[in-house]
Simulated assay, not measured.
Amino acid sequence: MLNYRILNTLRRPGLKADEDQNCGSYLVCDQRDKSKTKYVMKIIDLEDFTNLNDFIRDILWYKQLNHQNLMSLRDCFLIDTKLHLVKPYASFGSCTDLLFAHPFGVREQLIAHIMWQLLQALRYLQDRHVMHRGVSSKNIYLCDDGRVLLDNFSHCISMISPFDGRLRRQIYDYTDDLKDELLYLAPEIIFQNAEGYNFKSDVYSLGSVACELANGSNAYLDMPFGHLSMLYAKVQGSEPILLDQTQLTDEMIALSDENSSAYVEEIKKRRYSKEFHSFVKSCVSTRLESRCTVDDLLTHPFVKHPRKISNDPQLVAEDMAKLLGSYKDKQITQMSTTIDQILDRSNNEYNSINLSWEF
């Protein structure tokens, strides 16, 4: 702890300053590091928890996994009853933070870059027979060097049976913790039927995130009757779609009001490529046999540009950083604020789950 200097406190709404001392997130730098690289430190008082298995499991996953598009755990130590977890700081925050600043969605080119890097992360996990089961906008972080990091391994599960060591084609595990990802979960996970689910379920979640980044919000957010309507829609075969001028109907225009009229006007102006529509359709099909695999998506025309320059990781990062930089400039110019202030405001609005790291 003495090696880390606290630069700022990432406060949760409703918590007083003295409560933050017991459990909170901090922006820190390592005093031994001359580059003064920023990190996020989360301090958790273990006395407040009766079951520590989740923390142990998460730390073990971080130690087992190592990929440039997966969030890493830089440091982990215990002082008295307080667990300290140190991770890289992503200055652009999560994809949810990006959408908070751009509620009508972000550019297709940026989404293609994000999808390409996430596919690399999923490919790495699948090579190790691991399902993520938590691919969602709040668990995807954007660094200023152009890297995209997939975080939160609390829902990860191995496809290798713990009983006989054999590789399973399908799994049937469902825990109450998965309810946190209901908006992004594939229908087959929610159904909990005898057919089970597999790696393609992560692909469905990926497609949901792509739609959310393009549309500005999740397709199943704020539905009447909450999660019940969402569950019913997925059971009935509803699939997320990209909202652009090709999908805008007279009914949508007629139902728009003062709150949604600006969004409808935005939809009228934009037209996504047929490759993007095809990519999303390939991801979110409710039928497993029609849904693409990660390998299929890695050769999809939608990610043609990042794939073309993928032999040079530095070039990919620079291209991605350039796209993110345009958003940063736009935010500073139009909103007269910095990206850190945007993250702080998003943190206050969304109970901090979007700003810092989920453990």
Rank of each mutant, 00 (worst) to 15 (best):
E181Y: 13
Q334W: 02
S205F: 11
N152T: 06
S229G: 12
R107F: 09
H155L: 13
G196R: 07
K63H: 06
T299M: 13
F104V: 05
F191G: 10
F276E: 01
G216I: 01
K42W: 10
F279Y: 15
V235P: 10
N69R: 04
R74N: 06
F100T: 01
H305L: 09
L119S: 05
M115S: 04
R32A: 08
D54I: 14
G93Q: 02
G207L: 05
N215R: 08
N351K: 11
Y327Q: 03
L122H: 00
Y39L: 02
S158P: 12
I267H: 07
E251C: 15
L70H: 04
A317S: 07
L221C: 07
L10S: 11
Y184S: 02
E108Y: 11
V316L: 05
I111D: 07
R307F: 12
I114G: 08
L183V: 02
L142F: 00
Q170F: 13
H67Y: 01
S278F: 13
Q334N: 14
F191P: 10
K281L: 10
Y39G: 07
H277R: 11
T299A: 14
F92C: 03
N354H: 12
E318W: 00
K16N: 13
A186V: 03
D312C: 09
L221I: 04
F225P: 01
Y327D: 15
D180N: 00
K304Q: 12
I44T: 07
D127H: 05
W116T: 05
K269T: 12
L178E: 06
V303G: 03
F359M: 09
M1K: 12
F276H: 05
T333I: 14
L118P: 00
Q341Y: 02
S356L: 11
Y62R: 02
L10Y: 12
N22D: 07
V148K: 02
M252L: 14
S352I: 12
Y220W: 08
Q117Y: 04
L206E: 00
K308L: 14
M1Y: 06
N193M: 04
Q192T: 07
Y141L: 13
R287D: 15
R169L: 01
K38E: 14
I44N: 09
P240N: 08
I111P: 15
L52D: 07
I309D: 09
D18F: 10
E251L: 11
D58G: 05
Q120A: 07
L183W: 06
F199Y: 02
P103F: 11
M335L: 13
